[in-house]
Computed example of a mutant assay.
Amino acid sequence: MLEKHQQAPQFSSKNQFNEPVNLSDYAGKKNVVLYFYPKDDTPGCTIEANQFTQLAEEFAKADTVVIGVSKDSCASHTDFIKKFDLKLDLLADVNGELCESYGVWQEREKNGVKSMAMLRSTFIIDKQGVLVEAAYGVTPEGHAQEILEKVKTL
């Protein structure tokens, strides 16, 4: 698991438009909220995406871009964005490399069966590429507001 004050792992992943998005694109320009969620158009993930969208202007005023990540495809992300009029980029980490580098692809046990799953997590990365927040196992409801408050202190 990653911790505060360390360099954020670099990444390059395709967004909903099948265009590459790199952490280095924001270096020296914007703070980045990188949040990982299990699956497009599921209850908790929809709550989280909608709440980040509702606060999109406030994040922009705080010089911050919000980027969601799941293992869904670009096409799935496009459908999710259109359905809920989301105002954020969603990265398609279909091969799981980005999830692995941030330590969010973890083993879990449910009903006695072990499997790998996405641990809902959020990272705040400052303009220098340093992690100022590494939150694992977050709850969707109210999370976007909590992250906005932390971003405002940067």
Rank of each mutant, 00 (worst) to 15 (best):
Ile47Ser: 10
Trp105Ala: 03
Gln128Thr: 08
Ser70Arg: 04
Asp79Tyr: 14
Ser121Cys: 03
Lys87Leu: 05
Lys114Asn: 06
Leu88Ile: 00
Thr53Val: 02
Val65Glu: 15
Val132Pro: 08
Lys87Ser: 06
Val69Pro: 04
Phe52Thr: 00
Ser101Gln: 03
Pro43Thr: 05
Ile147Gly: 06
Asp89Ala: 15
Lys61Ile: 05
Glu97Leu: 12
Phe84Trp: 11
Lys83Arg: 08
Glu100Cys: 03
Val65Thr: 14
Val130Arg: 10
Asp63Leu: 08
Glu133Lys: 13
Asn95Met: 09
Ala75His: 13
Val94Ala: 15
Trp105Ile: 00
Tyr136Thr: 00
Val132Gly: 11
Asp79Val: 12
Pro140Gly: 09
Pro43Ile: 04
Asn50His: 13
Glu141Leu: 12
Asn111Pro: 10
Phe80Leu: 03
Asp85Gly: 09
Lys82Ala: 07
Leu91Cys: 14
Phe84Ile: 00
Val132Asp: 11
Phe123Thr: 00
Val66Met: 11
Gly129Lys: 04
Met116Ile: 01
Ser73Gly: 08
Ala56His: 14
Ser76Asp: 10
Gln51Phe: 09
Pro140Lys: 06
Asp126Trp: 02
Gly103Trp: 00
Met118Val: 04
Ala92Trp: 07
Phe84Tyr: 14
Glu107Gln: 09
Thr42Leu: 12
Glu100Thr: 10
Asp85Trp: 08
Lys127Ser: 02
Trp105Met: 05
Glu133Leu: 15
Met118Ala: 07
Lys127Asn: 01
Asp72His: 05
Gln51Glu: 15
Gly112Phe: 07
Gln128Pro: 03
Tyr102Asn: 00
Lys110Arg: 06
Gly142Ile: 03
Ser115Asp: 06
Ile147Glu: 02
Asn50Tyr: 10
Leu90Val: 02
Thr139Ile: 07
Phe36Lys: 03
Ala117Asn: 07
Cys45Gly: 08
Ile124Ser: 02
Ile125Met: 05
Tyr35Val: 01
Gly96Phe: 01
Glu146Asp: 14
Glu146Ile: 09
Gln54Gly: 13
Gly44Phe: 07
Ser115Ala: 03
Cys99Ala: 15
Val66Ser: 14
Thr78Gly: 14
Asp79Glu: 14
Pro43Phe: 11
Val65Asp: 13
Cys99His: 13
Asp89Ser: 15
Thr122Met: 04
Val113His: 14
Ala134Met: 06
Cys99Leu: 14
Cys99Gly: 12
Tyr136Gln: 00
Lys83His: 10
Ala49Leu: 07
Thr64Ile: 12
Tyr35Glu: 00
Pro38Val: 02
Val130Trp: 03
Glu141Ile: 08
Ser101Ile: 00
Leu86Tyr: 07
Lys82Thr: 05
Pro43Tyr: 10
Ala56Asn: 11
Ser115Gly: 08
Leu86Glu: 01
